[in-house]
Design a protein around this nucleic acid. Sequence first.
RNA 1: CUGGGUGUGGCUCAGUUUGGUAGAGUGCUUGGUUCGGGACCAAGAGGCCGGAGGUUCAAAUCCUCUCACUCAGACCA
Length: 479
Amino acid sequence: MAEKKFVEEITPMEQDFAQWYTDIVKKAELIEYTSVKGCLVIRPYAYAVWENIQKNLDGRFKATGHENVCMPMFIPESLLQKEKDHVEGFAPEVAWVTHGGNEKLEDRLCVRPTSETLFCEHYSNIIHSYRDLPKLYNQWVSVVRWEKTTRPFLRTREFLWQEGHTIHATAEEAIIETKQMLDIYADFCERDLAIPVIKGRKTESDKFAGAEATYAIEALMHDGKALQAGTSHYFGDGFAKAFDITYTNKENKKVHPFQTSWGVTTRLIGAIIMTHGDDRGLVLPPAVAPIQAVIIPIAQHKEGVLTRCAALKEELANAGIRVKLDDSDMSAGWKFSEYEMKGVPVRIELGPRDIEAGNCVIVSRVTGEKKVVALENIGETVKAALESARDDMFAKALANREAHTYSCDTIDEIKTALEEKGDGFVFAPWCGCEECEDEVKAQAGVGSRCIYDEISVEGKKCVCCGKDAIHNVVWAKAY
RNA sequence: CUGGGUGUGGCUCAGUUUGGUAGAGUGCUUGGUUCGGGACCAAGAGGCCGGAGGUUCAAAUCCUCUCACUCAGACCA
């Protein structure tokens, strides 16, 4: 038999990861380019993933007492200017509105790159007493950052995100909130997205503009590069001072409250693609997959096949599974490939022979394993398959991360490890000074991703200068 | 912002060196045969070759300018 020809070939990822990624986002119909560079159409399939992420996270936010609000899209320049570090950090990448209709604006407006300033203005209006605190807000909106180079999901000029903003009476309370949200993100990534993450604190040079401390979760992608998957910032009372937010405490004294902010973006979709994807296309975690199970009828022209498939679909839907029956007239083989490309975690094949025997074939997208199972009690069977798909994905991703995680004590060791075993996470002690941070980057090509203090640095020397180390740092090339 | 690359039917590209009627594969439409891993046959629709200017009897092809996208850096979720 002649070699089968594929409708859509995906560039193998070992060959060219960037090309592989570009292929996937186009061929799995996730995005479409537009006439504005870096502003992409998020197509229904990808948007459905985002909606599932939203639903899941929003539930967690609500469960911890947060409320959703919506701030304007525009920030007057004068407002943005109030916090010095903040404006310096964001000025290079904001888009400006200079005209309203035909009239030139006196105070030009920036399109929000993030909404701290708007929340601060609001807080200053509504917070007067300790009884008004805390306020735990969140908003699901898009923001704009005029990036020079863009990449679907990972860096676009406009992106969808969730930004939580909270304000508290005490620093302790705010710090607890900051860490709580980081934990929620980490739990969501690991449990629902099956992406193992490292929780840590950003170094001074890498923290959010205006923050006292920035915490992040870092994930390792298939090509050995790190991706920041979520951040949580502790602001202290810096913004409160700059925006003159005060409240009267129980002792009848006017004091400044303490703030946090935290966010994740549609970049998570990029993280999913680059963590789980393979040469056949996407692999979606069941918790967020728009289609969790797809039913492919075999020999669907034969009598009884489609009706049995429809009944199966209904049964699965009733069991709470997001299921699709593809009864289009494409060949079965074509459909197999199509849904593999789209990353549907579980495929169910049902043909005349199965119906006769009371069985169906269930196939895992993650492992490729094919099993003949009974049609009886199929809802539970599929649920179990989804459960183990998640576990398999996590195990696979974790194994990949561990295979590309190295502990090093000198810059030469870092270079050797990266050269011999490929890019990945490097754990190495650090003295805490920015010069060394820069030097590691210049020599070994890896930047500090976060400070990871779970590992003791007692007796360790800085990987760069050889002085006593004060922190363990995770280094990596990053997106 | 610096340095490469690419713009030709929906998509992937050939054709540019050496100017001479606009090409292929795939997708799409219709009809038929198929149907347990991307099937086959037949017919059909679809492009002023990124844009502007120039050279020429003649430009996708040569020259000038421009725009867009893309990749690798620096910067960033």
